[in-house]
Design a binder for these strands. Structure first.
Lengths: 186, 186
DNA sequence: TTGTTCATGTAATGGGTTACATGATTAG
DNA sequence: CTAATCATGTAACCCATTACATGAACAA
């Protein structure tokens, strides 16, 4: 059982979903393509952690609705009791930053500007999601026995780290401008 | 050519190193085991991006010192001109946070406390590294044509995001305490 | 008519970890 | 005596992405 499998169980512990829906819900906090999810679901079903029923739809393809079993819930509980392993971050921008001295100021600024425009969009999305959550479940988000508590703190994390990354990029660009004008007079 | 290969070229553009040294230097910003690095180095050497000489040592095993070639430098330059792809983060704590409602307050607090103690150590390490860098190269760190500029901004990033993660964990623990005492009176 | 959403799957390939393998020196 | 550091490599496996495959509805 790998981490993504537990992630799928965690989503299904809230409500039954199709593989496609699971993929969409998972996106913000764990990247995974459908080609990885479908085989895992089949496997989890084979091992008795999930069950599914085929739902026929008109005007849309049929889908498989997966439901967690008691065995699945037990496995989730056991996993939750263990400490989370350290996060893995792989950011190409870190490696490029390490090589900045090999390039010129314009190219360097372009690298960080590109990252800024990427993250401005992400930040806006997370902020909207957080506002929606507060509007709909404002009274329950701070009660940790509600599933919305998890959503609430995760969205806070996403907003926070997006802002942090943006600020860092802007700070670096500022340094690059200073270095360009004072360090190398025309 | 994958991202890690460019990372290795980036390290070797500063100074010649053995595979073992590359592995150690890479750790803080890109996780990679020696079993991944050695074959990549052999491949880069075969393609003409690197050269190596065997260095015999007394009291220590022999090592291969790799040096970047002009072809390697050209490849690095071309890679630097392209925008960095979006970072990938996989944090098991996110998935467990999503499932917090399934567990009790003590277990939840334990999860975040564990993460805090992990990151307190990391933060201290990064802060030390940054202090050392400033002590040794204080005058050059803000000149982007110096390799120390890259080190400087990367260490800033590491310190920043460690702090951000710690603050988030502490904030969540605060909410968990509040929820425990006010939401569920004894 | 071209692209997007919904919906599921398999196959091939690439990226990354764990385990296997060796061997000397040094610190606890 | 055991573990860690230095030093290199291979093999097996797992995890993840890209590409292949199908097909209907709907919007630009």
């Amino acid at each position: 059982m790998n981490t993504l499998s537990y992630g799928l169980l965690g989503l299904l512990a809230r409500k039954s979903c199709s593989g496609y829906e699971l993929m969409l819900q998972l996106q913000p906090f764990w990247q995974a393509k459908h080609s990885q999810i479908y085989p895992l679901l089949a496997n989890l079903e084979g091992e008795g952690y999930l069950q599914y029923t085929r739902v026929e739809q008109t005007e849309k393809p049929d889908k498989k609705m997966y439901t967690i079993t008691q065995k699945g819930r037990d496995a989730l509980q056991a996993w939750l009791a263990e400490p989370a392993s350290a996060p893995i971050t792989r950011d190409e921008l870190f490696l490029k930053t390490y090589c900045l001295w090999l390039t010129d100021a314009q190219a360097a600024i372009a690298l960080f500007s590109h990252r800024i425009s990427e993250y401005e969009g992400k930040l806006a999305t997370y902020q909207e999601m957080l506002a929606d959550l507060k509007a709909k479940h404002g009274n329950t988000v701070e009660d940790f026995s509600s599933p919305f508590f998890g959503d609430f703190v995760l969205l806070h994390r996403a907003v926070r780290s997006s802002k942090d990354q943006l600020e860092w990029c802007q700070w670096v660009i500022g340094l690059l401008h200073d270095s360009k004008s004072s360090g190398r007079p025309t």
